[in-house]
């Protein structure tokens, strides 16, 4: 694609708007990105978008940022990637900066703190809803090893207070080794 100011501006505008209107984060951003970059602008093929989604999902960090990096890179190289990151990061940066300022000023207000206390129960419910759905996905596959890893990781973190990073590194390495072993022997443990 041509590295013209117009294209950079369009890329910035698109990523900024996508980020500003994506509530709930994560997977929601992919269909919206497809709509913008494949259907409306015609800058990417549908299959490219699917590859980008797969890679964004396989990398650490926020999926919206990862996808933006890949789209920007693919369209306009390194400078495109930087513009996309900027467009994606600016909306939450601006919104949360404003909220933080209000938060520090208002947290001690009686009404605000009562409402936030009520909201804690709501956000607990939202987290447990996510956990139930995700755990359901693990249980459905009826494999012993993932269930053991789920239980083990929970005990390690909640009861034994093992650092999260160690748990993630350990389980990630274990998963990779078992998958490689399974591919050689034609088994499926995970």
């Amino acid at each position: 694609m041509k590295k013209s100011p117009g294209n950079y501006l369009q890329l910035f505008k698109s990523t900024f708007l996508l980020s500003a209107f994506t509530f709930g984060g994560g997977y929601v951003i992919i269909p919206l990105m497809k709509k913008t970059f494949v259907d409306e602008l015609g800058w990417l093929e549908e299959e490219e978008m699917l590859n980008i989604a797969a890679m964004a999902q396989s990398s650490p960090g926020a999926m919206a940022v990862n996808a933006a990096v890949l789209v920007g890179w693919r369209l306009l190289g390194l400078s495109g990637a930087l513009i996309s990151i900027l467009g994606t990061v600016l909306p939450p940066l601006i919104i949360l900066t404003v909220i933080s300022l209000f938060y520090d000023a208002f947290r001690t207000n009686v009404v605000v703190s009562a409402v936030l206390k009520g909201m804690m129960a709501g956000v607990s419910a939202v987290i447990f809803d996510v956990v139930i759905t995700m755990a359901g996905g693990v249980i459905e596959r009826k494999k012993l090893l993932p269930l053991l890893m789920l239980a083990g990781a929970f005990v390690a973190h909640y009861v034994l207070h093992v650092n999260v990073v160690f748990i993630i590194l350990f389980c990630g390495t274990l998963g990779a080794l078992i998958t490689l072993h399974d591919r050689k022997t034609g088994q499926e443990h995970i």
Binding site: A135, G137, P146, M149, A153, I168, G175, L180, I190
Partner: peptide
């Protein structure tokens, strides 16, 4: 390798979110 690591992380992530929740 990456696919395997992710497969191993899926149940782990559930456990960690549960713990934080």
């Amino acid at each position: 390798v990456i696919q395997g690591a992710l497969a191993g992380l899926r149940p782990t992530i559930v456990a960690l979110i549960l713990s934080a929740g």
